[in-house]
Amino acid sequence: MSINVLFFARYAEAVGFDSLEMEGDFATVDAVRLALASDPEFAVLNESSLMCARNEQLCDLNEPVQAGDEIAFFPPVTGG
């Protein structure tokens, strides 16, 4: 299946781009994260404070993933 992965703020700077299309079978958001984080370029995704969203809603790493999903990874938010 195909999914779209987004990175924001410090994470986008660390990986060098802000979006990525991925092909593969991913049961959960964490499976997507682990598939990327095996590459040192994506080491930032190993931070314990990482936040994630599925289809524009905050979620846990064990959130299920479906084809066509938009998965986003980002550092703790700092608005307000």
Partner: peptide, 10 residues
């Protein structure tokens, strides 16, 4: 908002 809205300050 401080903990859930996706804003980042630089």
């Amino acid at each position: 908002l401080k903990t859930r809205a996706p804003f980042w300050k630089k």
